[in-house]
Design a protein around this nucleic acid. Sequence first.
DNA 1: ATAGGGTTAG
Length: 710
Amino acid sequence: MRANAMKRSLHYNRLLDAPSQPKSSSLATLSVRDTLNILINSAETKNIQLGKIIHAYIITSNPFSSYQVIENNALLNLYAKCGQLSLVQSLFDSMHKRNVVSWCSLMSAYFHNGYVSKVLELFMEVFRVDDVRPNKYVLSVVLSCCSEGRRVVEGLQCHGYVLKSGLEFHQYVKNGLLRMYLMCSLVGDAMKVLDYVPGSDAFTYNSVLKGLLDYGYINRALVVLRRMMDECLEWDNVTYVSVFGICAKSGDLKLGMQVHGRLVESGVEIDLFLGSAMIDMYGKCGQLSTAREIFEALNDQNVVSWTALLAAYLQNESFEETLELFLEMEVRGVVPNEYTYAVLLNSCAGLSALGCGNSLHAQVQKMGYTDHVIVGIALINMYSKSGHIEAASIVFANMIHRDSITWNSMISAYAHHGHGKEALNLFYNMLALEEKPNSITFVGVLSACGHLGLVDEGFYYLYKLMRDKGIEPELEHYTCILALLCNAGRLEEAENFMRTTKTNWDIVAWRTLLNACYVHRNYTLGKRVAESVLQMNPDDVGTFVLLSNMHAKAKRWDGIVKIRKLMRERNIKKEPGMSWTQIRTSTHIFVSDDNMHPDTAEIHEKIRDLLAEIKPLGYTPDISCALHDVDEEQKESSLRYHSEKLAIAYALLKTPPGAPIHVIKNLRMCDDCHSAVKLIAKVTKRVIVVRDINRFHSFRDGYCSCADYW
DNA sequence: ATAGGGTTAG
C-alpha cells in the first residue's frame, strides 16, 4: 500500500518536473481516479504545493462534474493534514455541493487543531442541512471532541443520538463513547458501555485500562486486563504502556518484569512512548540501573524519555545525579519542558539547594513555564524546602491556575515552617472558593493547629469536619493529633490517645511522644515510651540519642554510660553532626568538632566573638548538650564547635550584612545551639533559617518560628 | 473522500 503510494508520488513528481512536458497539458489529461490518488498521496506526504496545483486544476476543470465534491473532499483533507485551517474553511465555503464527508472533513480539521467548541457548533448546524445526516465517522470526531473538552452534556446528547440512529454497534463509535465517559469522570457509565455493547477490540481495552489507571483503580484494571487476555486480543504497544503504568503505580516490580518478558517475546517494538513508560516503571519500583539501561537502549531519546529518566533519579533520592544528568541532556540539545523543570526543582528541594533553585526559576520564567500548575507546585516546594517560605508564598500568590494540590502544597509549607495562622487562613480561603480538601490537606491543617496549640479545634477538625468532607482519618492524621497534645504538654492525654485510638501506630508516632517527653522533661513516661520504641526497632539510633540527652538533662551520667554500653553492644553509631550552607555557587560542609574547613581559625574566632556578644543578653552554655565522654572543662568548649554554629559563623563572615542565612543540618538541632542562634540572629540583625531533621527553624530578632518546640 | 487508544510532574 505504502509502496504503491511512493511509486505514485515518484511518477507525478517526475511528471510535473519534466521540462519537455508542459504542466498544464499533462494535468489536463488526469482522470478523476488520478486526481484523487495525487491528493491522497500529497496528504500523506504533506505536499501542499502539489495540492494547490491540483486545486487550481479542479477549479478550471468541469465544475459541474458530480465527482468534483469527492475531489474537493480529498483536497479538504489535504489542507487539514497540512494544518491549513483557513484554507480548509474557505474551500468548504466555496464548494457548490457538499456531502456528509465534506462536513466530516471540516469537523475533523477543527478537532485536530483544538477547536472543540467549533466542532460542536458545526455538529448542530449539520442537522439543519437537508440530505446530510451524521454518520459513524462524524460521531467519532464529535465524541473525541467531547472527550478532549470534557463536554459531558454534549457527550450524553451524542449517546442519545447514537442509540436513536443505531450507530452504537460501530467499533469506533463504541470506543468513542467509552472514552467520552472516562474522560468526563463517569467511570461507571464507561464500564456499562464495555459490558453491554458487544464487540471490543484492542482500542476498547486500551482506553479502559488507561482510564482505570488514571483514576487509580488498579485492581479493576487488572481484572479488565485478565478479560482482554481471555478474549485472546493481542497486546500492542499502547496496551504495554498502560500495563507498565499499572505496575508503576502499584510498585509491583515482579509483575513489571513479567510484562517486560512478555514484551520481549511478543516482538512489539519499543517506541518512545513505551520506552518512557518502562523507564518510569523501573524508576518507581526502585530499579534505577534498569531504567538507565532501557533509556540507553532506545533508538532515539526525546524530552519525555529524558524527563522520565530524570524523574527516576529524583524518585530514588539521587538528587545531585538528577541535576548532573540534566546538564548532559542540555549538551545533547534536548529542550526541557514543564515536566522537566518540575523534576529539577524537586531535586533542588531535596537538596535544599536554593541557589540552584533560583537559577532554575529564572530559566522557567525565560521559557514561559511559570503559569503551569506543576511548575508552580514545584517552585513552592523548592522554596519551602530551601527555607524560603516568603518566596514560596509569592509564587503561590502569583499563580493563575490553582488546583487542590497547589493549595495543599502551600498549606503544608506554612505548617512545616510553623506558620500555623497562615496555614489555617489558606485553608479557610480554600473552603470559601469551594476547592475540595483531601486527606493531605488535613495533615497540613492538623499540624498547623499543633503549632498554634489549638487542641479543641484539632479534635473538631478530626472528628467533625473531616467526616463532613467524606475523608476517613488515617494514621498520619492521628499522629498530628498526638503531636498536638504533645506540643501542648498534655502528655498523659497523648499516651491515652494512643491507647484508645484504633490504628496501627508506627515508630514515627512513638518517637513523637518520646520527643515530647524529652522536651517537657517527663522522664518517667519517657523511659516507658523508649522501651516501646525499642521493641519496634531495637536499633533505633534516634531513641538512644534522646534517651542519652534525657539523662544528661537530669545529670544522670551513670545512665548515659549504660546507654553508651548498650549502643556499643548493638553496634549502633550516632551519625556525626553535619551542617551545610551554600555561599554563591559552592556548598560548604561543616562537621562538629572538625577542623577540616580551610578557614577554621577565622570561624572559631568569629564564634568566640558572637558568644561574647550574646552572653550579656542571657546566653549560658547548656552543658547537657555537650559531648558526654570528655571532662567538665572540655564540655563547654566542645559546645562551641557544633556544626551549625560553624556553618552560621562562616556564612556571617562570607555574606553581606542583612543577607538571610540558610543552614541545613542532618540531626535534630540541640538546645544549646537553639538558644544561641536566637540571640545571634538578634545581635547580627539577620534572619537565620536552619532546616534540621524534623522541621524548619526561622530565627529572627531573638525568636524562633518553632516557638521553642521541636 | 471522512473516524479511535499511549510517555514525563505533584
